[in-house]
């Protein structure tokens, strides 16, 4: 039996008003996404993206993934968006918010995106039989522990993602070095 699955409902605490919160958070996320791609002002787009990121973190909490939700808030909303806001303020060209916002071939882009959406919808309707009816309830209390077991390994063996974890740290190091070198005035 997979230790990740907890057959008790909610792990001892019943979830409350799931439908209401799903529609609220999902609606907020999509509204935020719409605002990101349509706002003229880049700071408004950044603030809408923060709303989207926080709603998606809430959706993670509803999917019994508290650790991913915490990482999302710390890294995405608290780190990456601060970086975006800094850069927006550094490159704030006054004329950019008065120029044309959408490029010349925007109808083609819109058609391509709608085709993609139609593809997704047809995949969902045709493949509905693939999804099992029962929504499994993951054990929320030991979520961090189990993710740590997968990342770091347990009982002396390497976990399935230990190597990927080390490579990810190398990736971050390379990104730090790249960002520092690219923004230096004299290399």
């Amino acid at each position: 039996m997979n230790p990740a699955i907890n057959t008790a409902v909610g792990g001892g605490m019943a979830p409350v008003a799931t439908t209401f919160f799903f529609y609220l958070l999902g609606g907020l996320a999509i509204a935020g996404g719409l605002a990101v791609i349509t706002r003229r002002n880049a700071v408004h787009s950044a603030l809408s993206l923060i709303v989207t990121l926080l709603s998606v973190a809430g959706l993670y909490l509803m999917l019994y993934a508290p650790f991913v939700a915490g990482v999302q808030i710390i890294v995405y909303a608290g780190g990456i968006m601060v970086l975006f806001l800094f850069v927006i303020m550094l490159v704030n060209v006054e004329t950019s918010s008065k120029e044309r916002q959408f490029n010349r071939i925007w109808p083609i882009g819109l058609v391509a995106a709608c085709t993609l959406l139609a593809l997704f919808m047809s995949a969902f309707t045709k493949g509905k039989a693939l999804f099992p009816d029962r929504m499994v309830t993951l054990a929320e209390g030991s979520n961090t522990q189990q993710i740590a077991n997968m990342l770091y390994g347990e009982a002396g063996r390497m976990g399935p993602y230990t190597f990927a974890f080390e490579i990810a740290s190398l990736l971050l190091l390379v990104a730090i070095l790249g960002a520092v070198i690219m923004t230096k005035k004299k290399i």
């Binding site: 999509i30 996404g33 719409l34 990101v36 791609i37 916002q101 959408f102 490029n103 925007w106 083609i108 882009g109 819109l110 391509a112 995106a113 709608c114 993609l116 959406l117 997704f120």
Partner: peptide
């Protein structure tokens, strides 16, 4: 899809 629209049109 919203992200794709943003990448292609802005």
């Amino acid at each position: 899809v919203l992200g794709v629209i943003g990448v292609l049109t802005r």
